[in-house]
Design a protein around this nucleic acid. Structure first.
Lengths: 349, 349
DNA sequence: CTGAAAGCGCTTACAG
DNA sequence: CTGAAAGCGCTTACAG
């Protein structure tokens, strides 16, 4: 499909096949054995200051760049983990990738992201490519918090499922605690004085929608309350948020808060409320879920929402990957989320 | 920072250091030499059907996974390119990554994304990590279309700058043709009958803002028109879009279109217009730039905008990377964009 | 068609 | 402290 890259004919510094200096070249220039050169460069103890300096000078002079691949061949480590996502817009994958990188430590292990585009075949291809490149582990990021097929068990390397969790209970999955999301969202509204709360959510089949609802209902019950009207399910879009909010208002049951299943839905709710001249948060509070800053911070009023703590999710996933007792983490781990308070639930002082 | 991964003590299939079968294992089981096994598996011609079958069976039985790293050591190719982005929300990086993958072909070369987080030091660290892993090329994705410092010339591998372009004219950069963006946006408005167009853009120092303005002004001039009022610069946010639109309307110069520098700004414009009871597109047309579907398709009315053709940009970048005559592409290449017509400029039939 | 040998760039015991 | 040698997993001339 594409031609092969060739060095410009002009500059032929091709000391090695790859065009750069090798350890052997460095050793030669420094007048030491390759073994010594290796030790010197890797800061091993048993090298004299003098030779180390000589080797380092030689390396610098030659512009030596160690070949991590060759190194990995010996010690079995590549210092690389793969992250496979199906997340078209990167909303989940990127924060998770950040968390992964943080947990890995900047210099030791590197995380590389590749995009499966929601295509199972492609996902498998990527996984194979990663395994063939001997990554030390793979994190599979889903774009919703439902069960997904397992990629298999004995792949010879640890695999952690993040956000979407594996169907196989022997796999290790880390995800968001949607029940707790519902709880803290409801709690926040209750604490801030709301008593008549309606709920607009996304796609009913999604466990995110169902579990959040459970958390909300239970928390309300603990406070001798219940949702006003039936919860409305649709999709996670602004359009649905607008439409559903109109329906809620037209039910003619008074409400003082709308708890939305996502920031997109909440944006739609805000739109409809504004259009009807209803003050937020004065008359009705609106709350979202996701803390998608683009949407939540730029709305009017800005949106109180639940942060899914995706970076933490990424960090945890990476830690599980490198847990010496990897398989002890089999099963699904649910990570707590936190409320981010902005202006849509609490009047500005 | 993290412990090392160890196989579960139970399953000791460690035929090799890495826990999987090696080519040598396969060869032994198939009763052929390693050389023959290699040829058989790589579909080279000079192997008999019988032996090839035997080798393939052996490989399957052992669950053999070739080590791409070792292969790369010999033939100097790793089948991997790196993409480094500073794009926090993945808005630019992900579509570009897709384009890169498309150009590369799914099986031959893989693209891995890593996130520099806008940190120059981190960017350099990642580049080094990539070079040490002997990627065949690197694509640097910026998050705005301005010049950025070069990472240097003689790195021993091709580097292409995408979206943001390198200051060094010897580097190869591909980016969006912002002048043309301005042209086609203005053209679309003119063709659809608008005559009094105001312009609200983002940060004035950004070349994206300046060049788009040029394209707009020139196109208007060609049609014996000019912008109504001074163009307004602020930032690329909804909030600025709202505020600036109010300013434009308060100027009391009649307009029939607002051409916005981004979809976010356009969303803000839509908000303010709706609030003032002005019909879009009936009275005033609104147009954005970016075709950020999340924003553009979900607004009311949906937003006519300019698609930056980021996937194409990615494809082009990948092609440049593998151009046999790489350095002939030195300089900046500007790629054209295209208008996506939705409901904010043309009344629905 | 098949295999012995050398080599890619590195590290790691093992002697000295 | 230093180096010769073996080896990681693979491929590629080169003989047979």
């Amino acid at each position: 499909m594409i031609a092969e890259y060739r060095e410009k004919p002009g500059k032929t510094m091709s000391l090695t096949k790859e065009g750069g200096a090798s350890l052997a070249d460095v050793a030669k220039l420094a007048n030491v054995s390759q073994a010594t050169a290796s030790k010197a460069l890797n800061a091993k103890i048993d090298v004299s200051q003098a030779t180390r300096a000589r080797v380092e000078d030689a390396a610098r002079e030659l512009g030596y760049v160690p070949n991590t691949l060759a190194r990995g061949l010996m010690n079995g480590r590549t210092g690389t983990v793969g992250v496979i996502t199906s997340d078209l817009d990167g909303r989940f994958a990127l924060p998770i990738l950040m968390g992964v990188e943080d947990a890995l430590g900047s210099d030791k292990v590197f995380a590389f992201l590749c995009d499966a585009r929601g295509d199972d075949v492609r996902e498998q291809t990527l996984l194979n490519a990663l395994i063939q490149r001997r990554v030390e582990g793979v994190i599979i990021v889903g774009n919703q918090t439902d069960l997904r097929p397992s990629l298999g068990r004995d792949l010879g390397l640890p695999i952690v499922y993040a956000y979407a969790m594996s169907e196989d209970p022997e796999d290790v999955s880390v995800t968001v605690d949607n029940y707790q999301v519902g709880q803290i969202a409801a709690q926040h509204l209750i604490y801030s004085g709301r008593r008549r709360i309606a709920h607009i959510s996304g796609e009913a089949p999604h466990s995110a929608a169902r579990k959040r609802l459970e958390g909300i209902v239970d928390t309300l019950a603990e406070n001798k309350m219940e949702l006003v009207g039936t919860p409305l399910f649709g999709d996670w879009s602004e359009g649905w948020g607008r439409a559903a909010t109109a329906m809620v208002l037209d039910r003619d049951e008074p409400i003082d808060a709308i708890l939305c299943g996502s920031d997109q839905i909440a944006r739609g709710a805000l739109d409809t409320l504004r259009e009807r001249g209803i003050d937020v948060p004065g008359q009705i509070a609106v709350m979202g879920v996701d803390n998608w800053t683009l949407l939540a911070a730029n709305s009017r009023p800005s949106l109180t929402t639940v942060d899914l703590n995706l970076e933490r999710l990424g960090r945890t996933a990476a830690q599980r990957l490198y847990d010496p007792d990897f398989s002890s983490n089999a099963g699904i781990e649910y990570l707590p989320c936190s409320v981010v308070i902005r202006d849509s639930t609490i009047p500005r002082l």
